[in-house]
């Protein structure tokens, strides 16, 4: 047989192809390293600042202007209360919207109009959501700057992200599963409830936990709502005023020029917040690994 390739040329090209591959691999490795490097610096700084102030009294104590007596229990509880609002609101509204858009709404102008708007909302700066919350929940509905107002504002903030990720999760459920269900005479709702939702649930939950992490780390909307920095009483219900972990970090950092130890308090609070986020992400990964189906 006559070869259509020149063997030596082929060999030369092979070498350069393999070399090219190696170069690209190195470039990608460097990019990864860069991210890791920045993260490491951040962690080291925060830990160095905060670790000495991170003790039991700090975790369980009430807020105070005196750095030696200040504790973050109030802010921690505030964040937990907000989470208790955000989880049900975003899950019900977010998953409901996603189900409607992905499974019920007919393809058309209306649907694409809504979807475009949701994607746009996902890109709106968080401070704008703060203004929205201030207008609607704090003033119009007259809640004041309480847990409910903060929770609803943060829910609005993460809803677009949650809706988009829930829609993706629903879309990823293989169509042949739904077909099998319809083929046996199931209604749309039965198919959604018994086949599509259970199959999409792990991804939906992962997405909702990730968006929850985003919600509890937000500061800007809370400052706009007028959430106080120094609040002595613990919040005990939806209509109590509250403060949250990121608020403390923000104000302590801001005032660290006045009292040097505030920087350490901020560092210690960051460690607590990071630990909380880490916990939530672990739960997300656990859910994903434990319940995700293979098709």
């Amino acid at each position: 047989m006559i070869k259509q390739f020149d063997e030596t040329q082929l060999k030369n090209r092979m070498n350069s192809r393999v070399r090219n591959n190696r170069i690209w691999k190195f470039i990608f490795f460097l990019s990864t390293l860069f991210g890791l490097f920045v993260l490491a610096i951040l962690m080291i700084r925060v830990v160095m600042d905060g670790i000495s102030f991170l003790h039991m009294d700090f975790l369980t104590g009430r807020l105070s202007t005196d750095p030696d007596r200040a504790g973050i229990m109030g802010a921690l509880l505030g964040t937990v209360w907000v989470v208790l609002v955000v989880i049900p609101v975003t899950l019900i509204v977010g998953v409901g919207t996603a189900i409607y858009l992905e499974l019920y709404a007919k393809r058309g102008k209306f649907k694409s109009f809504i979807e475009t708007n949701i994607s746009n909302l996902a890109g709106v700066p968080s401070i704008v959501y703060g203004l929205l919350g201030l207008t609607v929940f704090v003033r119009m509905m007259d809640f004041g700057n309480v847990v409910l107002a903060g929770g609803l504002t943060l829910s609005l903030l993460v809803l677009p992200i949650l809706i988009v990720s829930a829609q993706e999760a629903l879309r990823a459920v293989p169509g042949h599963l739904a077909e099998a269900s319809y083929g046996m005479g199931a209604t749309k709702w039965q198919t959604i409830r018994r086949v599509i939702l259970p199959a999409a649930l792990p991804s939906i939950l992962t997405g909702s936990i990730l968006s929850l992490s985003r919600a509890i780390g937000e500061t800007a909307p809370l400052t706009v709502l007028g959430i106080p920095a120094l609040l002595i009483p613990f919040p005990e219900g939806l209509f109590d005023t509250f403060t949250a972990l990121p608020m403390q970090i923000y104000y302590w950092t801001l005032d660290s020029s006045l009292v040097a130890e505030y920087a350490n308090l901020a560092g210690a609070t960051i460690i607590v917040l990071l630990a909380l986020l880490f916990l939530l992400n672990s739960v997300a990964i656990f859910i994903r690994n434990k319940f995700q189906h293979r098709y």
């Binding site: 077909e179 099998a180 269900s181 083929g183 005479g185 018994r194 199959a199």
Partner: peptide, 29 residues
């Protein structure tokens, strides 16, 4: 109609459930 007319597809498409639940799905709905 689909209760009286069953369908088997080209690619086997069991649900990600137990064998029992797969069969019981139709009667249950």
């Amino acid at each position: 109609l689909r209760t009286k007319v069953g369908m088997v597809f080209q690619k086997p498409n069991p649900f990600p459930k137990s064998i029992y639940e797969n069969i019981a799905y139709g009667p249950k709905i």
